[in-house]
Amino acid sequence: MTTSTFVAGRGFLYIFDARAKLFTVLLLCVMVFLPIRQTGLWTLVAASFLSAWYATDFKQALQPIKTILFVLVIMILFTPLTYRDGEVLVRLGQFPLATKEALVNLNILVARFLGITYICTLYMWTTPMADINLALRWYGLSYHAALVLTLAFRFVPYIADSFRMIQDSHALRNATVSDGERTGRHRLADLMPTVTAALVVALKSIPHLAMSLEHRGLGRETKRTSYRRLVAKGGLFTHLLLSVMIPTVFWLVFNTL
């Protein structure tokens, strides 16, 4: 199983410092919930889509929409039906299908959701996990917490591989000639052996991990040094300034003008 969320590409987003970029993401995510104009919301969606397209390619840029398609469809189907106040635009007999307020509401909800989706996804695409970890450390995350995060990423492929082998091993062991259609209840029961074996394999690695952490010096009182570091080209201050300016400009343009 691949654990990388990074997508190789080009442009400013890859140079933008992980710490400053994270701050921008936060500000933008808050901004979409403030009373900003609808045109502003859609400009933000368009801007983040175009950034995604420029950074990677068109196909990749469409990817986030695919992941939220189900929710989008539900939104379009349900929001107007349940939001009944206001001026009725479409009517089915006596039943108001959509009101003006409902459509405005739907419009804001869709744009907001798309915006948040693209902003968060872009951050993950353009920032290597190790840098995200360092950024979180910079914001005050403890070393131990950051270590848990790194170790979790270390163990995902290991447990995924083991799990796949366990499934195979049980499939071979349980293979019978007369294997008709399995009912849902059976399928759930079939999961028991594999899930149990997988959990035992995972648990067995815990004392080994604790042991190795100590053997590699976790617990020493000397201050840890760091092999990795974040380097902001042109100075961190510039990057942080930018990270505040981007949302501010957006806000000023679409809320006061």
Binding site: R216, G217, L218, R220, T222, K223, R224, T225, S226, Y227
Partner: peptide, 9 residues
């Protein structure tokens, strides 16, 4: 382990 030992960068 070198980070644990505090070895300078």
């Amino acid at each position: 382990p070198l980070e644990s030992l505090g070895i300078e960068r």
